[in-house]
């Protein structure tokens, strides 16, 4: 489903030149759960951004379902973001003016679906937050905000969920609850690529990719986690 071919990303020029990614290749099949690990600054976020079309690679190719994301124009990327790929960020990235429900509705709003309230409520129920639908992000805990962000990521029924340290801002217990949610989504057939520093979390992934200075330093197949029923 997803092929990353020799992707490099270079920021800046001259003395400011930073090679954030250096010739990274990987593949993800439908239903895969891949964990991306590595030290701070090793290029994990950069890789995720490029896979999701939030940033462009300096060289190499990103191919989703046979189409090159790296060469897509903005309009085509908008289509991808409206269904194929969604994101969950470390900082949740909810809109502060909107309630939990409205934040979940947001992707449907941009898609032009004006009667998605029931579906958005379902998604909130799915992450156990239907009782907090009317609350604004400022009134929710970090774990709850991340659940809202996950519900928002699910509302368009994406094929691939990209999560950049989704548990990075929370304590161990809350982090494990969020992880449990991701494992459930994985079991339901969503493909997931997740950046994490937590080896405990990575243990549940089908494959672990370890980045170091923008290169893949290690790749661990934990085959049993691959979900092939879907």
């Amino acid at each position: 489903m997803l092929v990353v071919k020799s992707v490099s990303k270079i920021y800046g020029e001259g003395t400011n030149r930073v090679v954030a990614l250096n010739n990274v290749s990987l593949e993800a099949a439908k239903g895969d759960f891949i964990a991306v690990m590595g030290h701070s600054g090793s290029g994990k976020s950069t890789l995720l951004n490029i896979i999701g079309g939030l940033d462009y690679p300096s060289s190499g190719e990103v191919i989703l379902d046979g189409r090159r994301i790296d060469a897509m124009n903005e309009d085509a990327l908008v289509d991808i973001r409206r269904g194929r790929i969604t994101y969950v960020f470390q900082q949740y990235h909810l809109l502060p003016s909107l309630t939990a429900l409205e934040n979940v509705l947001l992707p449907l709003t941009f898609r032009g679906t004006n009667n998605g309230t029931q579906r958005a409520l379902d998604m909130l129920a799915r992450v156990g937050l239907d009782k907090r639908a009317g609350h604004k992000p400022g009134q929710l805990s970090g774990g709850e905000q991340q659940r809202v962000a996950i519900a928002r990521a699910l509302v368009n029924d994406p094929a691939l969920i990209l999560a950049d340290e989704p548990t990075g801002n929370m304590d161990q217990k809350t982090g494990m609850e969020i992880l449990e949610l991701f494992r459930q989504l994985h079991r339901e057939g969503h493909s997931i690529i997740m950046v994490t520093h937590n080896p405990e979390i990575a243990r549940h992934a089908g494959e672990i990719i370890v980045l170091q200075d923008g290169q893949i330093a290690n790749r661990v197949e934990q085959g049993r986690s691959r979900n092939n029923e879907h």
């Binding site: 939030l54 973001r81 990235h93 992707p107 941009f110 898609r111 928002r152």
Partner: peptide, 11 residues
């Protein structure tokens, strides 16, 4: 906010 909106599908 613009980034968020675009990330969730705003053109």
């Amino acid at each position: 906010d613009i980034g968020i909106m675009r990330a969730v599908g705003a053109s």
